[in-house]
Structure formats: structure tokens, C-alpha cells
């Protein structure tokens, strides 16, 4: 199903680019994310969350770690404010991700409202996919293209959660475990494959090493600390080792 459009009209409309973006859901990362949401549906059901609530969570939050944190808090009977804090800490990572995606996404005439709307659909998978694929799209069509795959990806997984929750009587434990494992390996390989320069690779290595350390030292702030410390270190190490004078070269 990977046939390329042969006769591309010059005046491609937004709708066409939306459709082209949509086609990207037939891909390995989309499949892996669906597997992760199959796992999530099983987890929500096991945790005694209603079907409607699990579906609503997926649509409203659209960030798997935040959803898992929320369910854990619900199960523990945690109050609203501490739950908010736990969830919001797990979601801080979305800010730098969206911040770096915006300059890639917007064209001159892109409205802020459009970007705010689209930002809801940014999660790790769509971010990694956008990094991989958005560069090939003409700038003025990037928001349509991103909307095409990101909104579709979210919609599809909402359906996956509803369907799997309803029929998930007997997913074997080993299969669930394997499904959970797909996600980190996909992030790992894709992030490395799409790294634009060595600063990114250094940041990856540092994040991988620092993450577990900070998890043991400060479990609530582990991602934030690993990101800030690892990212800043990588930035300065990268600057030291890169030949100066060539700003932003490939």
C-alpha cells in the first residue's frame, strides 16, 4: 500500500495533503502505537476503569504515560490536586517537543489557533513520525499533512481502546508484555535513525543513562531532570566538539 502518487497536480489542495498525511497510518510506528493502546485498554479494564472513562481519557489526554499515571492515581484513591500534579509532571516533556515541532510545522500564514488545536495531537509517536516525515512536505502544506496523520492516529486509537476493552477477555500475558516492549524499542531506534546531528545522539545517550538514576533519586521528577540535565550537557558537549562557524549545517 505504499504506492506513490504518480501524477501530482501542481495546485494540491489542503485536503489532498491531509489525505497524504493520513496514508502514513499504514506504517510500523502507527502499528506499534496501536499495540501499546491494546495494552492500555487491557490495563484500564484490569484496573476497574469504565469503558467510557477509558475512551474519554484517551481522547482528552492522548499521552500514554499520563493516562497510566492517572489510572494509578484513581486506583489509589488519590485526591484531585495531587493527581493533577502527578499527571502534569509526566506531561511536561510535551512542552519542549511541541516547541521544537512548531518551527517545522508552521508556514508564514499559519494561525496560532491552528497550531494550538494541532498541538493536542502531539505525543511521542506523532512527534517522532513528524520528525521523520514532515521535511518532505512543502511548508505551506505541513499543517494539513500533520493533521492528516496525527488526528487520524488519535481517532484510530480511541476506536482501538473501545474495541479491545470490549473484547479483551483473554489476551495472554506474554503477548501483552511483548506489546508493551515494542514502544521503547521503536522510540529508541527511530530517534537514533532521525537524529539530525550529534547533539541529538549525545542527548539520547545521556537521557538513557540519567533517566533511571533520577528515577531512583527523585521518582516524580525523573524525566524532567534527565531531560534538563542530559539535554543541556549534550548541548555544551556538542558545541565543544563541533567545528564552529557552520551554523545549522547538515
Amino acid at each position: 500500500m505504499q504506492s506513490l502518487p504518480s501524477g501530482q497536480p501542481k495546485d494540491s489542495t489542503a485536503f489532498l495533503w491531509f489525505a497524504r498525511g493520513m496514508r502514513n497510518i499504514v506504517s510500523l510506528p502507527a502499528l506499534i502505537l496501536m499495540s501499546a493502546f491494546i495494552g492500555f485498554a487491557g490495563f484500564a479494564k484490569e484496573s476497574g476503569i469504565d469503558l467510557t472513562h477509558a475512551v474519554f481519557m484517551t481522547a482528552a489526554i492522548w499521552a500514554l504515560p499520563a493516562q497510566v499515571v492517572l489510572i494509578a492515581a484513581i486506583q489509589a484513591g488519590t485526591a484531585l490536586v495531587p493527581t493533577f500534579i502527578a499527571v502534569t509532571l509526566s506531561s511536561v516533556r510535551l512542552m519542549p517537543m511541541v516547541t521544537t515541532l512548531v518551527p517545522d510545522l508552521r508556514a508564514e500564514k499559519t494561525r496560532t489557533l491552528t497550531l494550538l488545536f494541532l498541538s493536542h495531537f502531539v505525543a511521542v509517536t506523532s512527534w517522532v513520525m513528524a520528525n521523520e516525515r514532515i521535511g518532505r512536505v512543502p511548508r505551506q502544506h505541513r499543517t494539513a499533512f500533520f493533521a492528516g496523520f496525527a488526528v487520524t492516529l488519535t481517532t484510530l486509537n480511541i476506536i482501538v481502546v473501545a474495541v479491545v476493552y470490549t473484547f479483551s477477555a483473554g489476551i495472554p500475558a506474554m503477548v501483552l508484555g511483548a506489546l508493551f516492549f515494542l514502544t521503547p524499542i521503536y522510540f529508541l531506534t527511530s530517534l537514533w535513525a532521525t537524529a539530525r546531528d550529534h547533539v541529538i545522539k549525545i542527548a539520547m545517550v545521556l537521557g538513557l543513562a540519567l533517566g533511571p538514576v533520577f528515577y531512583l533519586v527523585a521518582p516524580k521528577f525523573d524525566l524532567l531532570l534527565a531531560g534538563l540535565v542530559g539535554g543541556t550537557l549534550a548541548f555544551f558537549i556538542g558545541r565543544r566538539f563541533s567545528a564552529k562557524g557552520k551554523g545549522g549545517g547538515q
Partner: peptide
């Protein structure tokens, strides 16, 4: 910021 975002995602992977 991109380096910070990348290190964050790497920490997610490690976790």
C-alpha cells in the same frame, strides 16, 4: 530545547 526534548524521550525509553 531539541536536545532537552530528546533527552526527555530517552529517559522515557529507559523508564
Amino acid at each position: 530545547v531539541r536536545a532537552v526534548a530528546t533527552a526527555l524521550v530517552a529517559a522515557v525509553i529507559a523508564r
